[in-house]
Structure formats: C-alpha cells, structure tokens
C-alpha cells in the first residue's frame, strides 16, 4: 500500500489558517481592553444543565458524560440527573454566597422536562445560553444540513419561549460542530459560541463561520477536564485554577483586561464532597481587587464596544 500523491500536496499551505473560518493572530499582539469599572479580570462562570437520554446514539460519537454500559444504563442516566436535581442547588448557593453571576448552558429538553430549572435561572438573573436539544443530539461534520438547522431552531425557540430571554450564546453538545454550525447559529440570532477552545479572549470569526464571535470557554480548567478526564483531586483542581487566575491576573499589567472562564458541571462539582472546594476557590478569587463578575453576553458587549 502506498499513499496517493495528494497526500504530499498542500493546497492550503499559506499565511494564516488552512481554512477560512477565522483569521490567525497572536493574542498578545492585540489591542488591550478595559473592563467596566477598571476591573483587571472578568470572571465568567458558566454551568451546564443537560439531559442524557438512556437511548443516546453512539454515532457519530457519544457526547462526553454519556451512557457507558449496555441499555438501560441507569447508573449513568441517574448520576447525570443528580446534577439537575441536587448538584445545581449547591452550586447556586455558593454563587449566591459570593455574589457571582453566571451563564447557564441548557439543553432545550431540560427546559421542557424541568421548567423549575428555567424559572429558577431566570429568577436568579443568570443568562441562558443554548446548549442544543439534548446530549444525544450532537452536531458534526457531514451531518444532514436540514437536520442541523432543525436542531438549532428547536433548541433556541424552546429556550427563548420558556425563559423570555433572547438567548444569544451557544455551546454545542460535546463541543462539536459541523462546517455550517456557525452560519446557522447567527441566522438564528446567536452572537457567540463557546465551542472553539483556541483563545482566551473573544474574537470574531469570518463569514464562513457566520461571523459569529468565539468566546473563551475554559476548556482546560473545566471541572470535567481536570477532575473527570485528568483524575486530579479537588485540592489539585483548586490549585490549578488559582494558578491560572494568578498568571492571567499578572498578565493584565501588560496586556489589559483578561478573562477567567470557569465552567462547572453540576453532577461533577455539585457533589457533596466537592462543593466546599468551589466555595474556597471562589472566595479566594473574590479576595482580589478588580474582579468583574459577568455573564458571557456582558463580557462580549464590553469587548465589542472597544473592538
């Protein structure tokens, strides 16, 4: 077996990226931004409320956190549901204690099944961001375009109707997109996506991606990444987020406002034995001068005013 000669052809070997979805630039070369009130650091907390169907399809892949054992996997179904019932209550209490705002990424199935959660999020003043229909319906390259359009419409219209919020942010289930996701999102009134983990500041993507804004979404200090994937302890999670905060906080002296994006999963961080570590961490962060607690839209709007 040998490789076709096209394997050594590089039609997209050129300046910048090898695609037109967005342009390349070094974050450190960009114009510094100022956050409201002269804050050094925007603290963006988001949490996800997800429905994992028992009959979650395995193709093209299962979104992380999904079913593992043969059907019916009550074990994973109920441990995920724990987050929607118990874990989220603990996270809300800690956020209240530290007077922090948040963005809530919600599957539209959650809004249909548990209206309590939508009412509670709205009452708290947290921003709802679209999180697809449910965790069994991922967006992916090569999917049927009409199917993707329908999923996006269903998710957004359900969430908007249930909450009365404009819902201008989006996080695809499993952080997976097709080549068309950005275009379909902006056609449906979405302004920003959390799916591309390639930056620590907002940037606007190109026409091929619907000119959507990419927001930094803390993929590497996500509780899922550190605790579930890397198997680090709660104490280590706190240490790592504190290190991230300290580095970014120091960099604000040279580069202007920065963002600490902390993504929380209620069925992970909302466990009884973990929640006190979140409390400790957020207390430590709040002990610094110049912290601006904001949701995704607020951060993006402040950024766009200076872009």
């Amino acid at each position: 077996m040998t490789l076709d000669k096209s394997y050594l052809e590089y039609p997209n070997r050129r300046h910048g990226m090898d695609h037109d979805l967005y342009d390349w630039s070094c974050m450190q070369d960009r114009k510094p931004v100022q956050w409201p009130g002269g804050a050094k650091m925007a603290l963006w907390i988001s949490y996800s409320l997800e429905f994992f169907p028992l009959d979650q399809p395995a193709k093209p892949f299962k979104a992380p956190g999904g079913m593992v054992t043969p059907y019916p996997d009550l074990r994973h179904y109920t441990t995920r549901d724990y987050g929607n019932r118990v874990g989220i209550q603990r996270i809300w209490k800690v956020l209240d204690k530290h007077d922090l705002k948040a963005s809530a990424a919600v599957n539209s199935k959650v809004a249909e099944r548990y209206p309590y959660l939508i009412n509670k999020i709205t009452e708290r003043g947290d921003e709802i961001i679209g999180h697809g229909v449910d965790m069994g319906k991922v967006h992916y390259g090569g999917m049927d375009d009409a199917e993707e359009k329908a999923l996006i419409k269903e998710s957004l219209s359900t969430l908007r109707k249930a909450s009365g919020q404009p819902v201008t942010g989006w996080w695809s289930p499993g952080k997976s997109e097709s080549f068309n996701t950005g275009k379909h999102l902006t056609a449906n009134g979405v302004e920003y996506s959390c799916d591309w983990g390639n930056d620590e500041m907002p940037y606007q993507m190109n026409e091929d991606a619907g000119n959507i804004w990419a927001m930094p979404h803390g993929d590497e200090i996500w509780d899922r990444t550190i605790i579930m994937d890397k198997k680090h302890s709660e104490r280590e999670f706190v240490e790592e987020v504190e290190d991230a905060f300290s580095v970014l906080y120091d960099e604000t002296n040279e580069y202007g406002g920065r963002i600490l994006s902390l993504v929380l999963t209620p069925y992970i961080m909302g466990q009884h034995y973990r929640i006190k570590y979140l409390d400790e961490l957020l207390g430590w962060i709040k002990g610094h001068e110049g912290i601006w607690s904001a949701n995704g839209s607020e951060i993006l709007n402040a950024f766009k005013k200076q872009a």
Partner: peptide
Amino acid sequence: PSPDVLMAGSRDYGNRV
C-alpha cells in the same frame, strides 16, 4: 469527523496564545 473543533481548537491555542 472534521471539523473536530474541540481538538483542532485546542491545538491552535498553542500558536495563538
């Protein structure tokens, strides 16, 4: 399937940030 935005994005982070 391409575009694997999660993995490709995480690699591109190195050159941007």
